[in-house]
Design a protein around this nucleic acid. Structure first.
Length: 261
DNA sequence: TGTGATGTTGAATG
DNA sequence: GCATTCAACATCAC
């Protein structure tokens, strides 16, 4: 599920459903994903409090509590927040949940348990500590070019690196490289400033569109790469789709259309 | 039954 | 120090 647009969508719903609503009851069903508190401590931190704001940088999304503590929700590979009216509707793999005074149940779902949930005194300090890069949505063209201009290495590897730029993941990176007509295994040092700007502009356009549409990929434009991201497909333009592991991740690209620099 | 999956991290290697 | 590769994490679906 979650790259920047998906995380932003989860946060948007969280804001509309959870902010300013007292948390009456918290239940921890599997404390594995709670990385700096045990189940009881986690319950103590939330119960009787309420979330008053949110913050997001890349894929790191925080709920800020009325006592100024923050809860980091890092969704990992399969994290999601599910809302339901009745415990009987509770889906599978809920790892913890809380009940609001509106009687709404808010369940944190994560089948694969790759999530990281932290209680933090100061989320800004935490972001600095982990050296998280600038948010991909709020990054300016100038900042983007500065980040990549004097860098070496494989393009896809750098775009995946959350310490350089935060929010992109495997799928959106393939989309960006496709639309920019650049091979994901290109060396950054071989790219011109003009090409870096092109990557930046496609990134912005893709992320903005995805965020505005709540990351609902089924309605993404026909000419996006998304639906063609399968091995041995042939694009309407006649380009063959290739597949290979690049920077440790399964990568698809359009042969001949995306040139390797 | 085996394989790979939208993420991150730390170890090992060049 | 920098960059890359790989395994590990836990579970499910094809």
């Amino acid at each position: 599920m979650p790259e920047l647009p998906e995380v932003n969508t989860v946060m948007k719903l969280f804001r509309s459903q959870v902010l300013q609503q007292p948390i009456v009851k918290v239940e921890v069903k599997d404390e594995y994903i709670l990385k700096n508190r045990n189940g009881d401590e986690f319950i103590q931190s939330l119960q009787g409090h309420q979330f008053v704001d949110t913050y997001r940088q890349g894929k790191y999304f925080f709920g800020i509590l009325d006592n100024d503590q923050s809860v980091l929700f890092h969704l990992g590979m399969t994290g999601d927040i599910i809302y339901y009216q009745d415990p009987i509707e509770e889906p599978r793999h809920i790892r913890f949940l809380f009940q609001l005074n509106t009687n709404l149940y808010v369940g944190y779902q994560d089948p694969r348990k790759f999530s990281t949930i932290l209680i933090l005194e100061d989320h800004k300090d935490y972001l600095e500590h982990i050296q998280l890069g600038i948010d991909a949505l709020s990054c300016s063209e100038q900042e983007f070019v500065a980040l990549f201009k004097n860098r070496k290495g494989i393009l896809k590897g750098a775009l995946l690196n959350q310490k350089i730029i935060a929010g992109l993941g495997n799928l959106y990176i393939d989309e960006i490289c496709y639309q920019a007509h650049i091979h994901p295994a290109s060396k950054i040092e071989n790219l011109s400033v003009k090409q870096l700007k092109s990557i930046y502009n496609h990134m912005q356009q893709i992320l903005h569109y995805a965020v505005e549409n709540n990351a609902y990929y089924k309605i993404y434009p026909e000419d996006w790469f998304w639906k063609w991201r399968k091995e041995n497909e042939v694009l309407p333009s006649g380009h063959m789709i290739q597949k290979k592991t690049i920077a440790g991740r399964t990568t698809y690209w359009a042969k001949d259309l995306q040139k390797k620099y």
